[in-house]
Amino acid sequence: MLQTAQRQSKTKKPAPPHERFLEAFRWMLLTRTLEEKLVSLYRGGLITGGVYIGKGQEAVSAACGLFLQKGDIFAPLIRDQAGRSAFGEPLLDVTRTYLGSRQGPMRGRDGNIHRGRPQDNQLAMVSHLGAMISVTVGALMAKRFKGEKDFIGLACIGEGGMQTGAFHEGMNIAAVEQVPLVIVATNNHYAYSTPNDREFACHDLVDRAIGYGFEGYNLDGTDLSGCLEVIGGAVKRARAGRPPQLIVASVLRLSGHGEHDDASYVTEEMKRQPFARDCLKVAEQTIADLKLADADTLAAWRKEAAAKVDEAIATAQKEAPPEGDKEDWCALSTRDLVDQLETID
């Protein structure tokens, strides 16, 4: 039987935290530290292109990366730095890609959040939203064809990406193929500047789950324990052979779409909503309330995160950028099938 959506509960008294709370918190902290640094590099003109951060979405994202094991497939999206790091992406991949080092996984050929290591099961997103859902399904089908056991896939999306045709096709094909997939959709209430009421008209996005043959769950994305419980539970159910899982987390994007965007369109009323809380601050409060770590420990974690970020940035900054006249301008791996047309020398 498919389960319908469960409505989120109102804020309760602090309950005992999830057993992986502090572990997840540290990924959130590392992400916030890293992304604040990337923003200042961007503002200083040291990053070309754009910077897209996940401020306010770190709790959801960290939980996504945390429950995946070796052999699982992860398809992160724009605001999933915390998940990427928790899944095992080295910080150097981030700084090398943003700073245009030739040694990064994308080697200057693609930038910012369009990065991945498909050979290590971290898929490299394309900008066209929804496209990575079916790619994740295919990777899971391949694992089944090959007779692998105990694997799942987790794909991230936003409420904006949920409105694409590709997302619809991807959800449907995932359910048809009955692959062990978890889709974590974060409703951050804006697609760039467009608010929810111009994005969709259904009562609740999670209601779509049953329409596709998914099991659906709502989530307060500002509550780290809740994120760990709900996303961890979905991962567990997918691993146990339950139908594909859809989670819809509610947050507010606490930044612009990118750092070029001042997000002046976010209304004051929106900023007062419960989902507009900063998940990192909420988690810090929980740590203080429940005395999960003392101030010295927190300070040490912050220092460690800053040191790691500084090191990754310093390393990438020292590395050579790609150069047009030394680039291997070849889009095929089969070199003898490269078309011999005249292009720019």
Partner: peptide, 22 residues
């Protein structure tokens, strides 16, 4: 496959990355 050309090819891409020849 369902009438989902985008997802059919996306699925093939994912399977190919994972070592299949769809």
């Amino acid at each position: 496959a369902p009438i989902s050309e985008d997802a059919m090819v996306g699925t093939a891409i994912g399977a190919a990355i994972e070592g299949m020849r769809p």
